[in-house]
Design a binder for these strands. Structure first.
Lengths: 231, 231
DNA sequence: TTCATATAATTAACCAGTTAGTTAGATTCT
DNA sequence: AGAATCTAACTAACTGGTTAATTATATGAA
């Protein structure tokens, strides 16, 4: 049976979340905030569930915004993910590039680079997971924006690190390492700790993400790489 | 004209897809093979698309088996994934545990351990991705079998590596490292290279997975860790 | 040897729940 | 008024999982 069509009355304004108090972002909210809230919620959701596992409904709900607004700001789920990637990597580049462009001597430059990298990840421990979600897609599949991200962020940074290494090696300060080996090794060491943290937590007494532990970890990474790279 | 019916010789084994050569797995084929084919296809699919992104239809198709058969052998998608995890980790343990239980002196033992680990991953470069898919789920979510896998595989191996480290440190051969730092660092260095390989491929000339490159990479990892750990 | 029966292996067809994305409009700001 | 921001309600397509039937093999009684 269908309801009498005539009854369809103009809904009027029955707005508000239903919850009181909480001033929602929609309806006259600063659009910047809405967009930012969506992006932030997306980071969390993609990190937690991967690309395919992320739910746009959840992202919208978590951002306290109607799902359609999400599609107002972002073309589709994939574009949203792309925006998340850009957010993550532009942040990383912002911390790391200045160091690599500075005039420090090779030793310090490498150490500062590692430190900056580490600090950025430590401040955003969810990021490695967001990124790994992308790598998984990048096998045979097209993954167009994977390539873009690589070009835009990785290549220049990689190039600069390679330069520093060459410099240090030529100066006789570094052992002869291939950047293609060195970079993924140190990045892997930095990133892996954080992406494995939840798992580690289940089998150690220590909280792997406690402030104190992170300090210790940072010192270890710098020392470990120093010992491995410096002559 | 049709051949005289009398010639109808006992068909014997006409199992075959209709395609020649390829004896299909279905229709009363050796069940072992079917199960194995499903598992193999599942590894590939999970590695490529993550847990949520993996399609049971695709797995079945790729295994040349009806989807219902997949559910005949495995309770559900999650159980299948669990089986994949067991497959991967029991393989790893099989290579690594004997080394750690041997009577080698600490130095060699660590090197052999790293080598065995590396070789296993190198022989199965998809595995890291399968595992990372799981870690992503393990945030706030229950991820019951994550804990199980950690208990069953990681803890014992971790414990043994920690023992070797302690031994080496006490003997004055190793620098004093916390296993909680050392293990994720080296594992990260090993794994990361392979999970990042597709991405690296897009921005280097060299194929990061070529046999020659892998040999080089292996040597690097052993050397790098040696320099960082040994006094 | 032969035929009936049980059981393991396998499949085609289906379905109910989910989810990305849309539509048509409502508010608010300038 | 007009553009920008925002929403409730809706839908087309997909996907995990099920069901009922089918085929092949083994077993055992006659």
């Amino acid at each position: 049976m269908k309801a009498p069509a005539a009854t369809r009355r103009p809904v009027r304004s029955r707005r508000g979340t239903g919850q009181l108090g909480i001033h929602r972002l929609g309806t006259r909210g600063r659009p910047e905030e809405s967009r930012a809230a969506i992006l932030k919620a997306a980071v969390a959701e993609f990190a937690e569930n991967g690309i395919a596992g992320a739910r746009t409904d959840t992202i919208a709900r978590e951002a306290r915004v109607n799902k359609a607004l999400l599609y107002y700001y972002f073309k589709d789920k994939d574009a949203l993910y792309e925006a998340v990637l850009d957010h993550v990597f532009s942040g990383l580049r912002a911390r790391v590039a200045p160091v690599l462009e500075s005039k420090l001597p090779p030793r310090q430059k490498i150490l500062e680079y590692l430190g900056a990298y580490f600090d950025y990840i430590a401040a955003n421990p969810r990021f490695p997971r967001v990124v790994q979600a992308e790598w998984m897609q990048s096998g045979t599949k097209g993954s167009t924006h994977m390539r873009r991200v690589a070009q835009e962020y990785f290549r220049p940074i990689f190039g600069k690190v390679a330069d520093v290494l060459r410099e240090g090696i030529e100066a006789g300060e570094f052992r002869a390492v291939n950047p293609m080996d060195f970079v993924p090794s140190v990045v892997g060491a930095i990133i892996f700790y954080f992406s494995a943290a939840p798992l580690m937590k289940t089998l150690m007494k220590v909280d792997p993400l406690s402030e104190e532990r992170i300090r210790e970890r940072r010192a270890f990474v710098l020392d470990f790489v120093s010992a491995a790279l410096f002559k």
